[in-house]
Design a protein around this nucleic acid. Structure first.
Length: 577
RNA sequence: CGGGGCGUGGCUCAGUCUGGUAGAGCGCCAGCUUUGGGAGCUGGAUGUCGUGGGUUCAAAUCCCACCGCCCCGACCA
């Protein structure tokens, strides 16, 4: 492909709309363009890379024995009613109607559709296990689309669903997908890490997320520096350790703290470290007000709170409720004197000599002793987010550290949530009716593409792995005014085509510097520079984008040399070396 | 949805406070020179200043409403 006939609009300057490197590079390298918030067009080169990711996904799904299908993106709302998700997921779904005003939704995921299919088509234990997958556009009315393809309203997902006769089988299917995912990300040149995760709206029993570690990642990842424990920050467990609270027999005392509402303000005002403050948050647990207590220097994990309370929904109480239950404006709540149930993080066990709100405007208390001064019953639970430096919940020696990650894949062991609701059942060998055990497995294909750029770029541009680069090779004619240079470049183009190597030939009548910079920006793995200088010595230059290593070869050996280089790098990526 | 910011040629931005001829760099087109790391010169094209309304002799600039986009939070591949 010649650059002059391709649409590759590279940008010199960083478009205002992009914040993180991968998003900037997608735009600058001419791979995508924005249509609206969370809506992107793939330009030819971007689409080539996307198709290569899809191909790897497809190959690995097929290798794992999964069967490809294609389900409608447009789905009857009625189907979603049957699993209850029309209600629970209504905010993320696009709802539409046809001319008969039949309710339709644009599929944000496909558990309902595939389970409906399985319910109709799978009847016997002889048909199990089966895993189906598709690569298809998903629609989600994201609260806030962001970072280009990272969180879009419309994106391409590979979703797979396993159907098994029993739990052991389901675990095998889960394992097969887990291993396929490891291979997929490795082949895409990504360092991805599987971490324990929450099941969220999907439901189910257990799950792992595949995280690409990156500064710009939207998820917090906790891992142990000693053992293999790793989890999403939301899901991460903690080992209970007794805190040593200093002796403080002084009686609780109310002190005026005009205007000091936040932890920082109170901490500053009373000259007490945040760890010596008790953060009191008023929540509505299934619409019932409760107080949740965490140390002032920790965040409260609402997922843990919900689980500790056994509630379906928890949300921060509105100002009116807070004023009613604490008798004070927002910012002055404390456990002493509260008449509502209190659940406290166990890190606060034995807390004394601490500061909290006084349940009265512009006042806090100090020398609070939770056991002595709080009359309401306190139930204890793990409510706070773990953080770097905490002890590992799994091993005795380890300390946790905190990282950021991009979630590129997620595997769930679902159980029977959908198969029960949609009657996906089979007859076992004894003729007994059983419910199928399911698993579901997603990969954000478009997100994976961007994650590769996020993880593999330098100051000059993208550093593609050969496996998903739009083209593995770029031929660069350094001087289009020199007939010998052009002739050599065209010869190289022909030779590579004959060898089955896809190459982008930069035939623009531009200065060498412009082409070099665009080549670095686009980041194709092998750059072949053809100029009269090296031609005079009887060679052309091959430069690897990843490490800048230059190899000089006679033009006659160019195709064979590149073919070997490409094959070796592909092999290296599949072996994970 | 709450909070913050921004909308001026294709891109990056100045001009807005203090109303008075719409600008720069890059990109684009033509020509000449140049040709191994974003060249030089000459000439040229491109703007309903997000939209609507208002104030004013006069609005990119002041006021109101709306729309769009970006960033921070509750969601997730």
């Amino acid at each position: 492909m010649r650059w002059s006939r391709q649409l590759l609009p590279t940008l010199r300057e960083v478009p205002l709309e992009a914040e993180i490197p991968s998003h900037q590079l997608l735009l600058r390298a001419g791979l995508i363009r924005r249509l609206g918030a969370g809506l992107y067009t793939f330009l030819p080169a971007g689409l080539r890379a996307l198709r290569k990711v899809e191909r790897i996904v497809r190959e690995e799904m097929d290798r794992a024995g999964a069967l490809e299908v294609l389900m409608p993106a447009l789905q009857p709302a009625e189907l979603w009613e049957r699993t209850g998700r029309l209600e629970t997921m209504k905010d993320v779904m696009f709802h539409i109607g046809d001319r008969q005003e039949r309710g339709l939704v644009l599929g944000p995921t496909h558990e309902e559709v595939i389970t409906d299919l399985a319910a109709r088509e799978i009847n016997s234990w002889r048909q199990l296990p089966r895993t189906f997958y598709q690569i298809q556009t998903k629609f989600r009315d994201e609260i806030r689309p962001r970072f280009g393809l990272m969180r879009a309203k419309e994106f391409i997902m590979k979703d797979a669903y396993s159907f098994d006769a029993d739990t052991e089988g389901a675990l095998r299917s889960y394992r097969a997908m887990y291993e396929a995912y490891e291979r997929i990300f490795r082949r895409c040149g990504l360092r991805a890490k599987a971490v324990e995760a929450d099941t969220g709206a999907m439901g189910g029993k257990s799950s792992h997320e595949f995280m690409v570690l990156a500064e710009s990642g939207e998820d917090g990842v906790i891992e142990c520096d000693h053992c293999s424990y790793a989890a999403n920050r939301e899901r991460a467990e903690a080992r209970e350790v007794a805190a040593a609270w200093p002796e403080d027999a002084a009686p609780m005392e109310i002190v005026p703290t005009p205007g000091a509402r936040t932890i920082e303000e109170v901490s500053k005002f009373l000259d007490a470290p945040p760890a010596r403050l008790v953060k009191t948050l008023i929540y509505l647990a299934d619409e019932r007000p409760i107080a949740a207590l965490v140390p002032g220097d920790r965040g409260l994990n609402e997922i843990k709170l919900r689980q500790a309370l056994g509630a379906a929904v928890v949300r921060l109480a509105d100002d009116a409720t807070i004023e009613r239950v604490t008798g004070a404006p927002v910012g002055f709540a404390g456990p002493a004197g509260l008449q509502i149930p209190i659940v406290a993080d166990w890190r606060l066990r034995g807390a004394r000599g601490v500061v909290s709100g006084a349940n009265r405007a512009d006042a806090h208390v100090r020398h609070l002793d939770l056991a002595r001064d709080v009359s309401a019953d306190i139930s204890w639970a793990d409510l706070a987010f773990p953080r770097a430096g905490d002890p590992c919940p799994r091993c005795a020696e380890g300390t946790l550290r905190e990282l950021r990650g991009i979630e590129v894949g997620h595997v769930f062991l679902l159980g029977t949530k959908y198969s029960e609701a949609l009657h996906a059942e089979y007859l076992d060998e004894a003729g007994a009716r059983k419910t199928i055990i399911m698993g579901c497995y997603g990969i954000g294909v478009t997100r994976t593409l961007q994650a590769v750029i996020e993880q593999r770029h330098d100051a000059n541009g993208i550093v593609w792995p050969v496996t998903i680069a739009p083209y593995p090779v770029e031929i660069l004619a350094l001087n289009m005014q020199s007939p010998s240079c052009v002739a050599a470049a065209e010869a190289a183009e022909t030779a590579l085509a004959a060898a089955g190597i896809e190459a982008l030939y930069d035939d623009r009548d531009a200065r060498a510097g412009v082409k070099f910079n665009d080549a670095d920006l686009l980041g194709l793995p092998y750059r072949v520079s053809i100029g009269d200088r090296s031609l005079g010595r009887g060679v052309v230059e091959i430069k690897r984008r990843a490490d800048g290593r230059v190899t000089e070869v006679p033009p006659s050996e160019l195709a064979a040399t590149l073919a070997t280089m490409i094959r070796e790098e592909e092999a290296r990526l599949s072996d994970g070396a």
